[in-house]
Amino acid sequence: MVAEQAAVGSARERVLEAAERVVTEVGAARLTLDAVSHAAGVSKGGLLYHFPSKESLLTALAQRYVDSMQGCIDTAKGSLEDQNGRDLKACILGILGSDPRLKAMGAVLLATAANDLTLLEVIRERVAEHTRELAASGGNFARAAVVMLAIDGLKMRESLRISAFTPEQRETIVKELLTLADEAYR
């Protein structure tokens, strides 16, 4: 039974990984279940067992993106001292980190959401949760919110591949955001 559950989990993961590759290569609008099943090495019936529709697959990709982003934030948090502003700094470092997979998926999800706004629900819920945490953190909410908006803006530019910042300029911006995070909790 355990081996059967592991195989089911790994098949689901293979499908999601394949869907990420397909969506990154051809875009969400051109994503087909046949292409994903082929890329994952599973039958179309096997894919449909886990994801009964293209929409359910795209929703799972959105959830995977949000979970990966939260993982990056949690990893960054683990590397920071336990101090005021730690959560906000972890958002800066985690969200603006260098995971190329997340950069590619961010652009894909934006393009996909343009056609199906329900895909943004998972992201909307996570943003609302972060906003509540920010409001309850005891710092200067407005300043911390400005930092979060700057993170979102930079991430959006990079996801759309329209950022004109050099690596040095980007590094300076991240350092300034970390300074602003400190100031939000003084």
Rank of each mutant, 00 (worst) to 15 (best):
L31D: 00
Q83N: 10
G97S: 15
A76C: 08
R21W: 03
L31Y: 14
A28G: 09
Y49N: 13
G45R: 14
R124Q: 15
L119Y: 03
E81F: 04
L47E: 08
A111G: 15
T75R: 15
I123T: 15
E125S: 15
H50E: 09
H38M: 14
K44V: 14
S56E: 11
V36S: 07
L80N: 10
V23F: 05
V23N: 04
T75V: 14
T112E: 07
L110Q: 04
M69I: 11
V127L: 07
T75W: 07
L134G: 02
G27A: 06
V26S: 15
D34T: 10
L109Q: 03
V127R: 12
H50Y: 04
R86D: 06
M148F: 08
A128K: 13
T24C: 13
G139K: 00
K103I: 12
S137A: 11
D82Q: 08
M69H: 06
R143A: 09
A19Q: 01
E121S: 10
A62W: 00
M148A: 12
A90I: 02
V23S: 04
H38T: 13
E17W: 04
K103W: 06
T112D: 08
G46K: 02
G46R: 00
L61T: 05
R124G: 08
N140T: 10
V26F: 03
G71L: 06
A107L: 10
D34M: 13
L57P: 03
A90C: 05
A135S: 12
A136H: 14
V108G: 03
G97N: 12
H38V: 15
E129T: 11
V146R: 15
V26A: 09
N140F: 09
T118V: 02
M105R: 09
L80F: 13
L93K: 13
